[in-house]
Amino acid sequence: MTGALFAQSLVLGVLLGGLYALLAAGLTLYFGVMRVVMIAHSAFLILAAYLAWYFHETSGLDPLLSLVITVPLFFVVGYGMQRFLVSRLRPISLTTMSVLLTFAIALTIEGLLGFVWTGTQRRVQLGYSGTSIEVAGVSIAVVKLIAFALAAISLGALFVILRKTSFGRALRATTQHPEAARLVGIDTDRVAGLGFGLGLATAAIGGTALALDYTIYPSLHWHWIGPLMAIIVVGGLGSIPGAAIAALLLGVAASLLQVPLGTTWAQTVFYLALFVTLMIRPQGFFGGRLAQRF
């Protein structure tokens, strides 16, 4: 591999890793707060991408503007999903049953997307779709930069929300010790609902970023959920920094391997990492005590 190609792959890997990081952060957030493996996360991601595409098709405006609608919408849907569906499940079998429930939701979304917009592949065409800028011999598509910037800003915002606000403190308390959180007067049910909404909002942002750069089709979400689940296990279930670091590392690894191996085989790096992690360190590399139990 030449130096230029290496640099190119590295940059692409970081850009992709950023998007993975945002989405994995959402996925691990649900798990941290509610012990829920949210299989439908990537189905919502694709739904958001479709909404961005449809918004662009019908209004002719930039798909980024659809965020104004989809982010609050997804937040409310996520809140509702937790309060009215997930919370109905028996606590004793919550983890497995929530997998089935969110899996059912993913299938339903995929089916509805195919039903409403057919299985045809869709792509957003923009004035700046083909433009790229060149920095030090590395050419970067503008849409990828925008997607990365979006992911980085959202991840930063998520970090600030979790670290600096009182809601964030309540959320972290709920994650670490729900019983103690209740004792100090935190409404953990409401916090869980808001946490779920926050997680789903990241899917809205990720989906819009995805629509800028990718061809989309209803079953695309399976290609995302696999790597994302691998990332959160490698990072340690429930650990947002862990998810972000694992996402960047694996994104770069996949991107670098793509040159000698091709896209398909490069994808297997996620699954390989998942397998190796579970073999040598089942609790993940950055996770705390929470992950040991699951």
């Binding site: 798990f31 012990r35 493996v37 983890t95 497995t96 997998v99 689940m229 691998a230 296990v233 279930l237 998942l274 397998f275 579970l278 089942p282 609790q283 992950a291 040991q292 139990r293 699951f294």
Partner: peptide
């Protein structure tokens, strides 16, 4: 070796 979640994911 760990509980439910990893099994489903794998």
């Amino acid at each position: 070796r760990v509980r439910g979640a990893s099994f489903v994911i794998v």
